[in-house]
Simulated assay, not measured.
Amino acid sequence: MIDALTLDQLRVFAAVADTGSFRAAARRLSRVQSAVSHAIANMEAQLGVPLFDRSGHRPVMTPQGQALLSNARDILLRVDALRARAQGLGEGVELELSLAVDTLFPIAHAGAALKRMRAAYPSVAIRVSTLPLGGPVQALLAGTHTLGILAGEHFRHPRIAVEALGAVQMVAVVGAGHPLADAARTSGALAEPDLADHLQIVQSDPSPLSEGRDFAVLSPQTCRVSGQDTKHALILAGLGWGRLPLWQVERDLAEGRLLRVPVASLGRDSQIATETYLAHRIDQPLGPAARALAAALRDTAQP
Rank of each mutant, 00 (worst) to 15 (best):
S226R: 12
G212S: 09
F155C: 06
P158S: 05
Q200V: 11
S226Q: 09
P262K: 02
S204E: 14
R224P: 12
L258E: 06
L199W: 00
T146G: 14
T186N: 04
L199N: 07
G166N: 09
A237Y: 06
G238V: 02
D182I: 03
L239G: 03
A183L: 15
V249C: 05
R224M: 12
F155I: 03
G177R: 14
I235L: 04
R185F: 15
D214P: 04
I235M: 03
L244Q: 00
L239M: 12
C223P: 01
L180K: 05
G177K: 11
A167H: 09
S207I: 12
Q248C: 02
L199Q: 13
E255V: 04
A191H: 06
D229R: 14
L244R: 00
Q248M: 13
V263A: 13
F155E: 09
G148D: 08
H198S: 09
L236H: 12
L165W: 02
L239V: 13
D214F: 04
P245C: 01
G177L: 14
A151C: 09
G212C: 11
G166C: 07
K231D: 08
L236T: 08
G242D: 08
P220R: 01
T230G: 10
S265L: 14
G166K: 07
A264Q: 15
D205F: 02
G188K: 06
V173N: 00
R243M: 14
A183W: 07
I149W: 01
G148W: 09
R156F: 12
T146R: 13
